[in-house]
Computed example of a mutant assay.
Amino acid sequence: MKRLLATALLAGLGFAAAAQEAPTVKAHIEPDSIGIGDRFDYVIDVEKDLVQVVRFPAFQQTDDKIELVKELPVDTLERDGRRLKLRKRYRLAAFQEGRFDLGHAQVLYAGKNVVDTLSGGDSLWLEVTTFQIDSTSQSIYDIKGQKTLPFRFAEVAGYVKWGIFILLVLLAAAYALRRWLAARGKGFGDLFRPAPPLPPHVAAIRALEALHNQKLWQNNRHKPYYSGLTDILRTYIAGRWGIKAMEMTSDEIIEAMRGEELPDKASMDLTAILRHADLVKFAKDTPGAEQNEADYLKAYYFVEETKLVDEADEPTQDTLEIPN
């Protein structure tokens, strides 16, 4: 019985010792001989237990002979039970000829109640070579000066051909446009003239229709509705009779329009619209739906009854058509 206990105790101690065995560190460079300016990899391999913690070193720039190009992440190469094999790569470049001692690879190790720095093997050496120039067989010359080559039309022939083709197309398009404009009694200058202003009554009718489509009074916005209605009429009066209606009060507009030859209904409609608008804007009156629609129709017919009609626009007896 005592022999069995001793054997079990020795086995447990052996397992604990194996679990606390320090990681092994190995390092090498790939390749160990390069040309100047070339890159190489500094590789550190660590084999450790699953619960052990290691930290790979950070590259320290000491001079301009060797520079860090890229530090690759840690890679797991192998896993066997509790054992792990890790690899860390540092991609470096050498910019000076010679043989360099890269030292020992060192890894920080932290185990159970242990913090230590582990080194891996012998020092690593890197051989950096350059091109050897034999000055006895090869002559060295200065840099040659810039040489101007003769101009050759073939170098620009394609651009010239396409330029001529595009020019002919533009000339043909301009000629066709000129013929088209001449057939309509116009010239090139007519293309850039601004459109003539709309007659006052056309502008007023379009503005009234746009106001009606906004549905302001239907959403209890009576004041904006009547403000828009009276502004349209003021603009129409200013354009139709030359009266500065935008700067006048309602009473001043009514007084000024008495000097114009207006149909009786048109004069009464204008007065009614301006009075109702003043009540809404200044007395906060809220007209009903019938009143709002009636004032819109009055403004519409006021413009239609008082607009200027050219003789060319008036229907003649020959062209007048009576709908069925």
Rank of each mutant, 00 (worst) to 15 (best):
I66G: 00
G187R: 03
A93F: 03
D295N: 09
K265P: 10
D64P: 05
V46G: 04
L50H: 11
E30R: 12
K161Y: 11
W241S: 01
A277Y: 08
K144C: 13
P224Y: 07
Q20E: 12
R3Y: 11
A6L: 15
A182I: 09
D49C: 01
H276A: 14
I133V: 14
Q106S: 14
K147D: 12
S139N: 09
K48S: 05
W162L: 10
N220L: 10
A6D: 09
Q138P: 00
Y236P: 03
P31M: 05
G121N: 02
R55C: 03
Y300T: 12
A18F: 15
Y175I: 15
L297P: 07
V169F: 09
R82N: 14
L10F: 11
D295F: 08
D318W: 11
D64L: 15
Q291T: 12
I232G: 03
E314Q: 14
I237Y: 00
L13H: 08
A93R: 13
E260C: 08
A110V: 01
A157T: 04
K85L: 07
R83L: 13
A27N: 04
V53S: 03
K265N: 13
N219S: 06
Y301T: 10
D122A: 13
G187V: 06
R206V: 11
N292E: 03
F40P: 03
A110E: 05
L167S: 14
K307D: 02
V74E: 09
K223W: 02
D122G: 04
I253C: 00
V54Q: 01
F59H: 05
L208S: 00
N220V: 08
L181T: 07
D313K: 07
T129I: 02
P199C: 06
A176G: 10
L72Y: 13
Y225T: 04
F40N: 03
T148N: 10
A94M: 00
D190H: 06
Q291I: 13
R55N: 10
G111Y: 01
G242A: 06
E290S: 11
Y109M: 07
V156Q: 09
P323C: 06
L102Q: 06
Y141C: 10
A157K: 15
G242R: 02
L191C: 01
T249K: 06
V160P: 04
D313Y: 04
T136R: 13
I322P: 13
A93L: 00
P197G: 04
E47N: 04
G35P: 03
G288F: 02
D310S: 15
I29C: 05
I143D: 14
L9D: 11
H222L: 09
T148H: 11
D45R: 07
G239T: 01
G239A: 01
D264S: 14
I164A: 12
Y300P: 08
L84N: 04
Y236T: 05
K284H: 04
A245K: 00
L50W: 14
A6P: 10
L68I: 03
R83D: 00
A93Y: 07
E293H: 10
M248H: 07
I253Y: 09
A157P: 06
D38M: 12
R240C: 01
L72D: 10
S137K: 10
L68P: 01
H104P: 04
D190E: 00
